[in-house]
Design a binder for these strands. Structure first.
Lengths: 219, 219
DNA sequence: TAGCCGTGGAGGTCAAGATCGGCGTGCAGA
DNA sequence: TCTGCACGCCGATCTTGACCTCCACGGCTA
């Protein structure tokens, strides 16, 4: 009946699985475990106990590496925000043909969302948007990606800056939403087909706006 | 400096402001108070104490009208989900000209988001998406609106059902994302101008897909 | 005027974030 | 090889905060 009768068979060292790790390796392992738990359960439903258990360590170690739950979450969020922005930047820099740019950007969104870790949920489906730090980061991502796209739009159209920005936000949002829907559908449409459809929609929509020299279609 | 100095002038009874109300009126008032608090603070940060205080009643009355916090939230969510679907349905039924349909749908999204209550946050920015009941309702909204739109798309194109659905989700998402961005910008672009831009983007994107009879543009 | 019913403030419970003393391991030096 | 030391880890606990009910009070009806 005594609760301390847990019959722990510790092989010989006393550790459950991974044994003692150097500090940076342990930190990375904790980040990995936290990512899995946060992605699967969201911020609020994820308990620090869950993360510690997933990593095979006890709670105090978690607090020896991160000041608190929020900082742990922000570390992951920053990492994946940066990854997305870089992916979009890469897609836009890969070519100067704007049609191909649209395709590559759409492809980048789909690849980001399709990553097996599911980490896109931290950015696009966070349940901590009330926290100022999180909201600020998520908005910074949309602002950064949309700014990259809007520069391209503004290069070839006569649209004022704010309007180009609105369209850029729209195109990025279109990619994001459709990619998430496509993923949630679970593969009834092949990815390349979905990318082709969405980039066609974006490209035909964009190329109709007035261009330098008046080549644009008016309506 | 004391926070409890709210100078409540209770007219003559013991009630703070509204006095005794019939049951349905009280319920509506509680829903209104809950909506304000949930919109302003999100689900998790909102406390039942806050809602009761906002309504000028005490907590037990809240629990006499709603079994718990979740049910209160779901009641509001259902109300505003239904309102959005009906608005989109109305926009699509207002005409048979598809270009005007796109404009009206976009306009409906902007109007929905611009509503002074800010209730769109319950649907588009909920921080309770891990809760199955909430997730299910939010997905039902996107499914319902996109289905309405996809039927229109499928009427005039040769696209298979799944592809039309993907495009419909995309167009709805485009409206939703741009409307929210436009609102967050706080009026640097007039609403009509934003609607015009976004609906141009959507319409030009959509009308290029292959139509019955082969009139569509191929790429 | 007497009873009833709804309201209000104070409190219970519990989950989850955050923390303290003890233990065991591996290494440095003699 | 033996011994002392330092470090990383763990069980057990504290505390906070939020959801959810119990005893007194005052207006309405017969």
């Amino acid at each position: 009946m005594t609760a301390s009768q847990d019959t722990d068979e510790r092989p010989r060292t006393g550790k459950t699985s991974t044994g003692r790790l150097p500090r940076s390796a342990r930190r990375n392992q904790l980040l990995g475990a936290a990512e899995e738990v946060f992605v699967a359960q969201g911020y609020h439903a994820a308990a620090m106990d869950d993360i510690a258990e997933r990593a095979g360590v006890s709670k105090p170690v978690l607090y020896q590496h991160f000041p608190g739950k929020l900082e742990l979450y922000l570390a992951l969020l920053d990492k994946h925000c940066e990854a997305l922005v870089e992916a979009i930047r890469g897609a836009l820099e890969a070519t100067t043909d704007n049609k191909l740019r649209v395709q590559a950007t759409t492809e980048a969104y789909f690849a980001y969302v399709a990553a097996e870790s599911g980490a896109f949920r931290l950015v696009f489906e966070s349940d901590l948007t009330n926290e100022a730090a999180v909201r600020e980061r998520v908005e910074a991502v949309t602002r950064a990606t949309a700014t990259l796209v809007s520069k391209v739009i503004a290069e070839d159209t006569d649209l004022p800056e704010e309007e180009a920005m609105l369209l850029a936000v729209g195109v990025c949002g279109l990619c994001q939403i459709t990619a998430r829907f496509w993923l949630a559908q679970g593969g009834t449409i092949p990815k390349d087909e979905a990318v082709r459809l969405v980039s066609s929609l974006s490209w035909r929509g964009l190329k109709g706006f007035p261009m330098h020299g008046g080549e644009g279609v008016t309506h």
